[in-house]
Simulated scan of single mutants.
Amino acid sequence: MRLVCCWSLEKLPDNMGKLISLKYLHVLGCDKLEYLPKGIRRLKKLKRLDQCVVVCGEDEDRAALQVGDLRVLNLEGNLIIKLKGNVEDERELEKAQLCDMKKVIHLQIDSKDVQYKQTRSTVEILNGLRPQENLESLYICYHSGTTCPNWMMSLHNLRFIYLSEWSESKFLPPFGKLPYLEKLTVSEMKKVEKIGGEFLGIVDSDETSLKSSSSTSFFPKLKEFEICFMAALEKWEVGVEGWNKEDSEISIMPCLSSLQISDCDYIKTLPDFLCKTPLHDLIIKDCPMLSERCEQSNGEEWPKISHIPNIKISQSW
């Protein structure tokens, strides 16, 4: 059943649980959908449900699919979980048992319309939604906590990550240690002022071991990196003390082929390691300070990017 982009659709029939042979239900783009009917949990043959609008909280409409009902669904492939309501106890989220959905490999969590009444932060909500460990793609839309979910860095098979609207985080998560990450997008993390060693996964105690190591690699498989709408971001540094472009055995983003930085008004610097990456495409859009510093020949950042064959720098105003 395909109901994709039915813009005005608010509800589905409460008796949908009678469609016992239904295997596919597509409701992506039905942005006014208030909830999915609870009867969906009876659809034992349902394999694909692209967007799952679930309600949290004991006082919410009992005709609606609750977050704890997710545990009875045998879904596979892509899944978007859109949370609504008020969480009384974070253990309510654990009932979803996403860790048992072994066939869901692409997961998106949208927590913009849900609150945890105790702290008004989404960190406890996300912590309770621990997915299965072999997840390949993760998209977290809206997060009001200062730290990332406590399970994120244990997902070692992640290949694609998209983070959007993390309102309180001041640092990017330490993604540099994820061995298979290929594409990363960070957007609207409005309190991040600097990208440095924490992004690579380096803490102070790691510096000595790095200096004594013959070879270390961060972001070993990353091919595409996009940074956009980062209102406070001013600089992107190497983040490794003592790194130099001549003789360092520390490898950072050795497979990077595409880098896009857009709508970051205050960013001024790029990291030195870019000159050692195989970058093929660089797009800088609506970043006035960085654009000026990347001007061909006389820009201060130009030596770091002069080897890139395709460079596009533009302003939309």
Rank of each mutant, 00 (worst) to 15 (best):
Q108A: 12
C99I: 04
S111G: 14
E188I: 04
K183T: 09
Y139L: 14
L93F: 12
I105Q: 13
C148G: 01
K191A: 02
L184F: 06
I195Q: 10
E207R: 05
M101T: 02
E133Q: 09
N157S: 00
S121H: 13
L200I: 02
E207G: 02
K211G: 10
I161K: 05
A96F: 10
I161G: 05
G197P: 05
L93N: 07
P149M: 02
V123F: 10
S205Q: 14
L163P: 08
Q108M: 13
T208D: 14
Q97I: 12
H106C: 03
L155G: 06
E207V: 11
N150V: 03
K194M: 05
E207M: 08
E124C: 14
F175I: 11
Y180W: 09
E188L: 02
P131W: 02
K211N: 08
E168K: 03
L158F: 11
P179V: 04
N134H: 11
G196D: 02
K112H: 12
Q115M: 15
P179A: 07
M101G: 10
S169M: 15
L210T: 08
Y180R: 04
L129C: 06
G176R: 00
E92K: 03
K177V: 03
Y139H: 15
K95H: 11
K177S: 10
D204P: 05
W151E: 08
P179I: 07
D110V: 10
Q108I: 05
I105C: 00
C141G: 07
S121F: 04
K103D: 15
I140T: 07
F171C: 09
K177G: 04
F160A: 06
S154K: 14
C99K: 02
P173Y: 12
L93S: 08
E136M: 00
F160E: 05
C99M: 12
L98S: 11
E193T: 03
L138I: 14
L178N: 01
R130W: 02
E198R: 10
G201R: 09
H106Q: 15
K112S: 14
L158P: 04
R130H: 12
G176A: 13
I140W: 13
Q97S: 14
E207S: 02
E198W: 00
L181S: 02
S154P: 04
G176T: 11
K95T: 11
K112N: 13
L200R: 04
E207P: 03
P174C: 08
S205A: 15
Y142E: 14
K117Y: 04
H106G: 01
L158N: 11
Y180N: 10
P179N: 07
T122A: 04
L158M: 10
L184I: 03
G196Q: 08
Q115D: 15
T146P: 04
V104H: 03
K170S: 01
V114E: 06
S144T: 15
P149G: 02
T208Q: 14
